[in-house]
Computed example of a mutant assay.
Amino acid sequence: MMNYFEETKKLLNNSVLFYLITTGMDGKYSYINGHYAKEFSHINNNFVGQPYHITMHPDDMNTCVEVSMKCFENPDKLFPATIRKHDGSGGYVYTQWEYKAMFDDQKNPTGIFCLGYNITKYVAEELELQIAQEEIEKNSVTMEKIIFQQSHLIRAPLSNIIGLTGILDKTLLDSNTSNICDMILESSNQLDEVIRSIVNIART
């Protein structure tokens, strides 16, 4: 088992994408790869022997403990954890990890093996997507209100105007008033077509 971890450490020691760390049963770093050392050098120049939590958001410490316990309870499984790390500017970067328990040849627990990478960009894009979806949903509700108003609240009285104008036009009116009724009717029909067009566009 330990040989497997040692080979993995050699393979990813100089990775430019992945973080690789191990912690002992005392909760202190026992190994970090070059990428982790470089990315978090603003926190410490030599992590080995330091407590595992010095790089992370305090609220994420419990996540590490809970995931580590699952690893020892299920030695053959990997368990994920999302951890926020200090970025050196007062903020945090988001990192995604997989934890696995380490054991010696006598099957005694020796620590936790962690493989991770930076997902800050992904988290930011997810947040932007969520905001965009919320905006779309908000606009959709607004559009539905507009369609309803156009279809019912506006067209209903407009239809009444068209009907009443048609009735007036058939009564005994002088030619001038009759012409006015015709113009009202024509304008009302044109407005009705515009409203229908707006509703159709909104529904597509």
Rank of each mutant, 00 (worst) to 15 (best):
T55D: 13
Y99V: 10
M143H: 03
L12V: 06
K77G: 00
Q149K: 06
I154C: 02
V48L: 09
E135A: 09
V199C: 04
L11S: 11
I167H: 04
L185S: 14
F79V: 08
T110L: 02
A132W: 04
Q106G: 04
D76C: 03
C71W: 02
A81R: 08
V65T: 05
Q150N: 13
G166V: 08
V16T: 15
T165D: 01
C64Y: 07
L17Y: 05
I119W: 06
I43D: 04
H86A: 12
D192P: 00
K138G: 11
V93C: 02
F79W: 01
D76K: 02
I32W: 06
P75E: 02
N108K: 15
M2A: 08
E98Q: 10
P58L: 00
V123T: 05
W97A: 01
T95I: 11
A101C: 03
N13G: 01
K100C: 07
V93G: 00
Y36A: 15
S197A: 14
N160L: 04
L78K: 03
I32V: 15
T142P: 03
G91W: 01
G24P: 07
C181T: 12
T177M: 10
N46L: 06
S68A: 14
E6D: 13
D169F: 04
K77V: 03
F5L: 13
K170P: 00
K77D: 05
K28N: 13
S30P: 06
K38T: 14
G88K: 05
F18C: 09
T22C: 14
L129G: 08
M143C: 11
I184C: 12
F40R: 00
D76G: 07
S175P: 01
Q190H: 12
S15P: 07
T82Y: 01
A202I: 05
V123N: 12
A156M: 05
M102K: 03
F18H: 14
E193W: 12
I43H: 00
E193Q: 11
I83A: 10
K85D: 10
D59C: 04
A81Q: 07
G24H: 00
S188L: 07
A37C: 04
E137D: 12
F40A: 05
L127Q: 15
D182P: 01
I83G: 12
Y99G: 02
R84N: 05
I161N: 07
D169Q: 08
M69I: 11
N33C: 02
S68D: 06
L168S: 10
G49L: 07
E66T: 06
K107I: 09
I180H: 03
S188R: 06
A156N: 14
Y122K: 11
I147L: 03
L17A: 00
M2H: 10
V199Q: 10
A37K: 09
H57W: 01
M2V: 12
Q50C: 11
K121Y: 04
S187A: 15
T55V: 15
N3G: 04
T95G: 11
D174N: 15
F113Y: 14
N200C: 05
Q106P: 05
I195K: 00
Q150Y: 05
Q96K: 13
T177A: 08
D105H: 08
P80H: 15
C64I: 07
D26F: 08
E73M: 08
Q150M: 14
T204N: 10
G91T: 04
E7Q: 14
